[in-house]
Design a protein around this nucleic acid. Structure first.
Length: 301
RNA sequence: ACGGAUUUAGCUCAGUUGGUAGAGCAUUGGUCUCCAAAACCAAGGGUCGGGAGUUCGAGCCUCUCAAUCCGUG
């Protein structure tokens, strides 16, 4: 197996785009994005999508491929990313996969179980039931449909409880019986590179990047999609805070402050997730030379 | 300079008739098989501006020093 997927991950704002472009250029290859928000073609500024210049420096896949109105999930991403890689590995020895969406990265590297896509009508119905009757009713349903998962799930987390109920009703089987917990084999090697900095420095970068987004027109971008603020794709840091501001909940300065805070929190969550993955070799964004030689150390025969 | 007010957790403030302190936000740690930039859980942190006095005991009372703010000059 002489094909290598170089996975570059890290918290938001760390500089994954820049590093991955450098790495891709070095190996004369292309980039597959693993970003759950940059897939939306409408959202450019607030998602820090690669610029036209960056996109022309290296061919990117899976960016701006969907509309904010489309349904998309980690499972879909697994399918798309594998399809891209199968095709691209025919002409490349190495490919770069980069992005901050933790579950998308794991979907490609480890695979996720195939579950049916949730029926919109059923989701709507259960959501209404939850909102009207409360979480206790959902818990009782889950306990009846899947007592095994009931004992495992965080019962406070309505999203997880509801989703499990959805899958049970949709398949007629307990949700837990569909979870295999297995790691799928991939027809390529995986090299995982993590980018990180001291917390303080990372937060400074994040704060500064938010200011730059505002200068570049983030507010106008959000304004454009205000009418669609209830779409899941717009339940996104950088937009949801501005929508609340447009609703009159707080002033603009407060909204920008919240965008910074929520970006910091998101970065922290990403790091919590990635920390458990012992396959990741960590570097600072400035250590490009070390990153490349680390990758090459896997490739010599 | 005089009068008044303020000084309690990183920030904004609560603290009842004196019994060694709380909240919100921020911060930190964690969970995670699918609309995940989502959703959820948990934790740490203060010699109560400095000093002295009264008291069995002071964030709360008295004196003094300091800083900040508002008036009047």
């Amino acid at each position: 197996m002489d094909k290598f997927l170089i996975v570059i991950i890290g918290p938001t704002g760390i500089g994954k785009t820049t590093t991955s472009i450098e790495v891709a250029r070095h190996f004369n290859t292309v980039i597959i994005s693993a970003d759950s928000r940059q897939i939306f073609k409408e959202l450019k500024i607030g998602t820090a999508a690669p610029t036209a210049q960056e996109l022309s420096a290296v061919q990117h896949y899976n960016i701006a491929t969907h509309s904010i109105h489309d349904y998309y999930s980690a499972w879909e991403f697994e399918q798309d990313a594998l399809a891209y890689s199968e095709r691209l590995f025919k002409t490349h020895q190495q490919l770069v996969l980069t992005g901050g969406s933790m579950m998308y990265i794991d979907a490609v590297c480890k695979g996720i179980d195939e579950l049916p896509t949730v029926d919109q009508e059923l989701r709507e119905q259960l959501k209404n039931q939850y909102e009207q009757e409360g979480i206790e009713v959902m818990r009782r349903q889950l306990k009846q449909l899947d007592p095994v998962f009931y004992d495992q799930v965080d019962l406070q987390n309505h999203k997880r409880v509801i989703h499990a109920v959805e899958i049970c009703l949709l398949t007629g089987k307990p949700y837990s019986s569909l979870r295999t917990n297995s790691i799928k084999e991939r027809p390529f090697n995986i090299i995982k590179i993590g980018l990180n900095l001291d917390r303080e420095e990372l937060y400074e970068r994040i704060n500064k990047r938010v200011d730059i987004m505002v200068e570049e027109g983030l507010i106008e971008e959000a304004q454009q999609f205000y009418a669609h603020k209830d779409l899941n794709s717009l339940n996104t840091v950088g937009y949801k805070e501005l929508f609340a501001h447009f609703d009159g909940e707080y002033d603009l300065d407060k909204a920008i402050e919240l965008i910074k805070r929520n970006s910091r929190r998101y970065a922290k969550k990403q790091l919590t997730w990635f920390k458990r993955d012992s396959d990741i070799k960590w570097f600072k964004p400035s250590e490009l030379v070390n990153i490349i030689s680390y990758c090459e150390s896997f490739m010599v025969h």
